[in-house]
Simulated assay, not measured.
Amino acid sequence: MQVAIASGKGGVGKSTITASLLYLLKDRYKLIAVDADAEAPNLGLLLGVEEWEEEREHFGAKVARINPESCVRCGICYERCPYECIYMDDEGNYVVNELTCEGCNVCGLVCPVPGTITLEQVRSGVIRRATTKYGFPIISAQLDVGKPESGKLVTEEKEWAKKLMDELNLEHMIVDSAAGIGCQVIASLGGADVAILIAEPTPASLSDVQRAYKVVQHFREPAYLIINKADLNPGFTKLGEWAEAEGIPVIGEVPYDRAIPKSMAMLKPVVEVFPESPASKALKEIADVIAEEILG
């Protein structure tokens, strides 16, 4: 199965919970982890990855190039660029800022000198593979600064993970999605068999997890909910009420626990270093539910 873990909101403990669930399930199943947050990947840090065994560059983004030799310096491209990424350098040449260029080719269409402005492919990021210190593989990606195509990076991550599942006879893929509902999240949820949503009892988290659930509904995937920091705001009941109204099973509640930030500072899952902490006990129960009701 392919299980996507999403939240809609950053900072709710999604990667922390994912790392702990991977640790708890690694002895029951043959797993592969995918860090689908290409803009800020950190799952590998919690799983003890110190260096990557293999890296693949991803090329796909396009940026405009202006040939200074044929450019007549009319300034039309500068005036028409919708992203204002063309400027004049100290030598009087028009230059494209690659960090803000979206490759829309408006400048190339309005340029009066054919062939002066061209679109060229540049690197968007890198996809990498490693074996965690717990024995299962992880696929991660790092988007280059200012580059688009984070969704394509995640899609390629998952394709690589699928090939490894076939080669290594692995059973399940656990995908740690990014925050929000953008391209990365859509790519991580697309093709998944089930989605596990992480939320905390706050109005902001409820609003964002509702948006994430709409993406899950688009793909017609069954969804489950884990409430993290469940005792942080005991008077807030709308999260549970929403889940009940939507028919989303709540498979566990994790209490606020100071052992979690301590374990993160140690770069280890909390269930490994503080197995008797309140959060670890709750996560063990959640892992059992996932094993029985989802993975089988």
Rank of each mutant, 00 (worst) to 15 (best):
I117L: 12
P114I: 12
Q121K: 14
S150R: 04
A291P: 08
A291S: 15
T16I: 07
A130Y: 10
E159K: 12
G92S: 07
V49N: 01
Y29K: 05
A195I: 12
D89H: 04
A192Q: 14
T18K: 06
I248D: 00
P82K: 07
E57K: 12
G60R: 01
H172F: 13
A282S: 15
V216I: 13
A192D: 13
V12L: 06
G190L: 06
I117F: 12
E50S: 05
K163S: 09
K214T: 12
G10H: 10
V106R: 14
V273I: 08
D257M: 01
V126E: 11
G135L: 06
W160F: 15
V113H: 10
T202R: 10
F59H: 08
L239I: 07
H58I: 10
I139N: 00
T202C: 09
K152N: 11
P114H: 12
A287S: 14
E253T: 06
I17G: 09
K152I: 08
G115V: 08
K162G: 02
L25C: 02
N228R: 04
E246R: 13
A223M: 04
C107T: 14
R129M: 11
I86A: 07
Y83A: 06
T18N: 03
S277Y: 01
A291T: 09
C104R: 11
L109P: 08
S124H: 13
A33R: 00
R80K: 14
Y213N: 11
E98P: 07
N228F: 02
A4L: 06
F219A: 06
T100A: 14
I139E: 00
E293K: 15
P148A: 01
G44A: 01
D193K: 14
P41S: 00
I186M: 09
V154L: 02
G191Q: 11
L109S: 11
E149L: 13
I138Q: 04
M165W: 03
A36D: 00
K268G: 02
V273H: 01
L153K: 02
P261G: 01
R129I: 10
A279L: 05
G191E: 10
L21I: 14
L143R: 08
G108A: 14
I181G: 10
L109D: 12
Q184A: 15
V34F: 02
R80C: 06
E272K: 05
K238H: 09
K147P: 02
G191S: 11
Y224N: 03
K284W: 07
G180A: 09
L46W: 01
P269S: 02
E244R: 13
V250D: 00
F59Y: 15
P261R: 00
C77E: 04
